[in-house]
Design a protein around this nucleic acid. Structure first.
Length: 293
DNA sequence: GCGACAG
DNA sequence: ATCTTGTCGC
């Protein structure tokens, strides 16, 4: 079947405008991992039995930062997979007909109980890219001990999501996802290592990060993004490369639905290039948020 | 010091 | 993340 939304503009990265944050504050150490000042690991041993509340201590945050820095060394920011995109015909790296094609796209997300913030449901779905129909579905209801701390979402959600991924790998090899779309950012993160990167490295799978809100990084602001998005007339691109004040590209703001003022934020997770990530996201967008997530 | 801060 | 009311457009 031919999907009507498949006729939208080809999400090509090369021809996009850029969002540059105020060129004033150009910090040369944009990736130097400046640790929060609260990160003063010392007097923490006194409240051992007195604070059952799962608040994150500064010592914990320091450990998390180190873990992110360590895992980031295994991050692959280019296309690194055996398959190729479907439909592209001649445009894609012209190979013979023997190549593997991207067919199974996974998506992971979590939802929480309204009354109990620690009770959560983690879900993994796998869609057939050609039909956008769900061909696999699994979930797990768990109680989370780790709190949500901006910049450290992975330490809260990655563990259970990883379990779901390992499970599908060993129990349903026939529809094993070749790529995972994550509800959360990848490179678009204070230290360039969001949930999508974290999951991708640990699961050793290509991942794409999908943010529904902008995490302010390197001078990027929502108002700035919206402004430039509006500034483009209706039939110009609905894709903005997110370049911070440091000059680094963190991802793209994508207007996946017509005239929507609120874009989604796409960034690479692992083993994929931003250009390919954008193409795949475009192929799975029926509405604002791509179907897998 | 103040504001910002994915889910 | 979750909740809430209303509104605009096809």
């Amino acid at each position: 079947m031919l999907r009507p939304w498949a006729s939208r503009a080809p999400w090509n990265l090369p021809e996009t405008c850029n969002v540059r944050a105020s060129p004033s504050s150009i910090s040369a150490s944009f990736l130097s991992d400046r640790i929060p000042m609260e990160a003063r690991a010392s007097e923490e041993g006194e409240e051992a039995a007195s604070s059952p509340a799962p608040s994150s201590s500064s010592a914990e945050v320091n450990q998390w930062i180190e873990a992110q820095n360590l895992l980031r060394r295994r991050l692959i920011e280019r296309d690194d997979f055996p398959w190729k995109l479907p439909g592209g015909g001649a445009a894609e790296s012209g190979d013979a007909s023997g190549g593997e094609v991207l067919k199974y796209v996974g998506g992971v997300d979590m939802s929480f109980a309204k009354d109990d913030g620690s009770l959560a449901c983690a879900t993994l779905v796998v869609l057939d890219l050609s039909t956008l129909q769900v061909v696999y579905e699994d979930f797990d209801v768990v109680r989370l001990e780790v709190p949500y701390v901006p910049g450290f979402l992975a330490f809260r959600e990655a563990p259970v999501l990883l379990e779901l991924l390992e499970k599908v790998k060993r129990s349903a090899k026939d529809i094993c996802p070749q790529l995972i779309m994550v509800d959360g950012n990848g490179l678009l993160h204070p230290r360039g290592f969001g949930l999508a990167c974290h999951l991708g490295v640990l699961a050793d799978l290509p991942t794409i990060g999908i943010g529904k809100n902008l995490h302010h990084v390197d001078g990027l602001t929502l108002s700035g993004v919206k402004q430039l998005l509006e500034a483009k007339d209706n039939f110009s691109k609905d894709l903005l490369t997110l370049t911070g004040s440091s000059g680094r590209t963190w991802g793209v703001a994508m207007r996946s639905t017509w005239n929507t003022s609120k874009p989604i934020f796409v960034s690479i997770g692992h083993r994929i290039s931003l250009q390919t990530a954008v193409k795949v996201v475009g192929m799975t967008c029926k509405y604002r948020v791509p179907e897998p997530v």
